[in-house]
């Protein structure tokens, strides 16, 4: 997987975020590690983009680099035509209200010493009233996310994990953002609560018209909430496709292995085992980064990096030997 390439980027006036050739490096003892390595993708207004992959594949870093935390080492991040990577700190600050984030751990991401009302209203105190919400409409927003406004003076520890995640969602929506990055927002929750939060995100998205970038290691969750899904491996993009299309027709061998590993699924995918360990991101394999674990790897895969190319309507894969129905293989 390795995929670089920009064939999957769309020419559409509704494109809100367009990331091209983004690289994120972190300094480590004696060198650098490329957490994100030449990744390109785009996000259309009102769309939910799911990003999946194993731990360490760079999915969180990719999403965070979009909001310039951290700033990418190279590449561009266009938000409504403005390249965020070129903005000064001050100009970037003025864009921030449009880009919000929801974190994994609902309890530690809320300040324990402040009241829920203050936590939700803080953005408005900084920026003044914007769009939909104002300080005197906080109660209404709390109702929209399913928290009783009478509890506004309580502190986060008085709420359950699911309720805290609702508060985080209210906090993310209060500035009327265009994009919300959800970094594993339901991973710490029980399944019954997870369903409430996923439904709430869908409702809020439909009601207030935002785009979501939804990061999760749980493929079932990602399939449920996403319009389009991007599969990542070791800092590269493997496959991008519409959510239903990807699950009906996974073509990258890594995507297929992920799907075969979903517990209890009536796998449409034949058994594929990933035995070997995930290679080190400090010294990634040459060619396709997945070649050390791929059942279909050839010499070409060990030397030439595959580029993303179309294999169907809106379906792109970075693989020299994708798994295609015989008739469609070329």
């Amino acid at each position: 997987m390795a995929g670089s390439g920009t064939a999957h980027l769309r020419d559409d006036p509704r494109v809100l975020v367009r990331v091209e050739h983004m690289v994120v490096e972190f300094p480590i003892h004696g060198g650098t590690v490329q957490a994100v390595s030449d990744v390109s993708f785009d996000l259309i207004e009102g769309e939910t983009l799911g990003i999946v992959g194993e731990s360490g594949c760079g999915k969180s870093t990719t999403a965070r680099a979009v909001i310039q935390m951290p700033r990418p080492t190279s590449g561009s991040v266009l938000f409504r035509g403005t390249d965020l990577t070129q903005l000064s700190a001050e100009d970037l600050r003025s864009v921030r209200p449009d880009l919000q984030m929801i974190f994994q751990d609902p309890i530690s991401s809320l300040n324990p010493r402040r009241t829920v009302h203050d936590i939700i209203a803080e953005g408005l105190r900084v920026w003044g009233d914007r769009g939909e919400w104002s300080i005197d409409k906080i109660d209404e927003l709390m109702e929209a996310v399913g928290i009783d406004p009478r509890y506004g003076e309580r502190k986060p520890h008085q709420f359950s994990g699911g309720q805290c995640q609702r508060i985080s969602i209210a906090r993310a929506f209060v500035l009327d953002p265009k994009v919300i990055i959800c970094d594993e927002p339901v991973s710490a929750l029980d399944v019954s609560v997870q369903a409430q939060i996923l439904n709430l995100l869908e409702d809020m998205k439909a009601r207030y018209g935002v785009s979501l970038m939804f990061i999760s290691h749980d493929l079932s969750v990602v399939k449920n909430i996403s319009d389009r899904v991007m599969v990542m491996y070791l800092g590269k993009v493997c496959e991008v496709a519409g959510s239903d299309d990807l699950f009906a027709r996974p073509t990258h061998h890594y995507t297929r292995a992920l799907m075969a590993a979903i517990p209890g699924s009536r796998a449409i995918v034949d058994e594929q085992v990933l035995e070997a360990e995930l290679p080190s991101a400090i010294d990634p394999p040459a060619g396709c980064r997945f070649n050390t674990r791929c059942p279909a790897a050839t010499d070409e895969c060990r030397s030439v990096e595959p580029q993303l190319r179309p294999v169907g309507d809106g379906h792109f894969v970075a693989c020299h030997h994708p798994h295609l129905p015989v008739a469609a293989a070329s």
Binding site: S160, V191, S192, V193, Q194, A195, Q196, L198, N199, E202, L219, S220, V221, K223, N224, I225, S226, D227, S243, D244, F247, M259, I262, S265, R266
Partner: peptide
């Protein structure tokens, strides 16, 4: 039954409405 219905099923199309368990 409620527990099973609250889990997103990868065999169902995306955006299928989930069924949370009401209450706590």
């Amino acid at each position: 039954q409620a527990l099973l219905r609250s889990i997103p099923n990868p065999d169902r199309p995306s955006h299928t409405r989930l069924h949370p368990i009401p209450g706590r």
